[in-house]
């Protein structure tokens, strides 16, 4: 999908496709280098994670469909925390500074990544964004990914936890329809519950049931950023994750999100080889 349309090439990793100066492009064709994109992404992700770990910043990747309320959740979180945790935000969208402006309006540092056409953030884009943020004294960094339930699940950004939002205006069967995304979630948030009374067709229990059907043990919380209902449980989850992360850091360990990177790797098992003999040509 992404490589078919070329959208996995972002401003962050475009340099990997450009042959180094002084070398023939023949021996280093774009296709050959494209092969290594995911490998490069994962290497950069490890460097990003090491940077977060050196500063002790818990980094959370927020993923959902467009319009599920990721930015509204961040705004409500900032208000609810009321300065008790120091946070920063990286925003990912195809265009506009709108989301970063909304975060900055609340006095929190934010950097907007505009991806142009790319439908997800990658580790290189995040690395570039880090140049614009001060990580010192930070407790939590949120990365609001591009709204998309497919590609973001495949790109490690170097973050520690994945949070997937599912708003009640979407179908309650989204986890069943997008199993790769929801299996990767460390927490599922059912958002916009204030309008549930108008949406009898959406059942939070069914949504959670679909998540459980993926053998996921991730908690599923229900909240409304607008009414504030359920925000305490989300803030409690944040505090508890921060505590586990700090405990891990004390042991010089880190935490990794519940992604399943094996799925996209070509397994290196030896294939069966069949020979089709043909007469030797003279």
């Amino acid at each position: 999908m992404c490589d078919t349309c070329g959208c996995n090439i972002t401003d962050g990793n475009r340099h990997l496709l450009t042959p180094p100066k002084g070398r023939s492009s023949l021996g280093n064709s774009p296709a050959k280098i494209l092969n290594n994109l995911l490998l490069h992404n994962d290497q950069q992700a490890d460097l990003n994670r090491a940077k977060f770990d050196s500063k002790g910043v818990l980094t959370i990747n927020l993923m959902s469909s467009p319009g599920s309320g990721k930015t509204a959740l961040l705004e409500a979180t900032i208000r609810q925390l009321n300065g008790s945790l120091k946070i920063a935000v990286i925003e990912g969208d195809l265009e506009t500074e709108n989301d970063a402006d909304r975060i900055r309006a609340l006095g929190v540092q934010a950097h907007q990544i505009t991806t142009g056409t790319a439908c997800h953030l990658d580790a290189h884009l995040v690395e570039k964004a880090l140049d614009h943020l001060d990580l010192d004294e930070l407790d939590v960094l949120f990365i609001e990914n591009v709204g998309n339930l497919v590609c973001p699940a495949s790109f490690d950004l170097g973050h520690h936890r994945n949070v997937a939002l599912l708003s009640v205006t979407e179908g309650d069967d989204k986890p069943a329809k997008y199993p790769v995304m929801f299996r990767a979630a460390d927490l599922m948030l059912i958002s916009k519950t204030d309008i549930l009374p108008y949406l009898p067709e959406f059942s939070p229990d069914r949504a959670e049931g679909c998540l459980r059907n993926l053998a996921s043990k991730a908690p599923a919380l229900r909240l409304s950023s607008k009414s504030g209902e359920g925000l305490e449980a989300w803030i409690a989850w944040l505090h508890s994750e921060l505590k586990s992360y700090r405990n891990a850091r004390q042991q010089h360990e880190t935490v990794k999100p519940n992604v399943q990177p094996e799925g996209r790797m070509l397994h290196r098992a030896e294939p069966e080889i069949r020979f089709v003999p043909v007469k030797k040509s003279a």
Binding site: S216, V278, K279, K280
Partner: peptide
């Protein structure tokens, strides 16, 4: 029960390659 672990189904495996070779084994 939902306490399961996936052992197959998230992989991409090169299973077989058929090679055209000269008759001389």
């Amino acid at each position: 029960g939902n306490d399961t672990r996936l052992i197959r189904g998230d992989e991409l495996i090169l299973a077989r390659v058929e090679l055209v070779v000269d008759e001389d084994p």
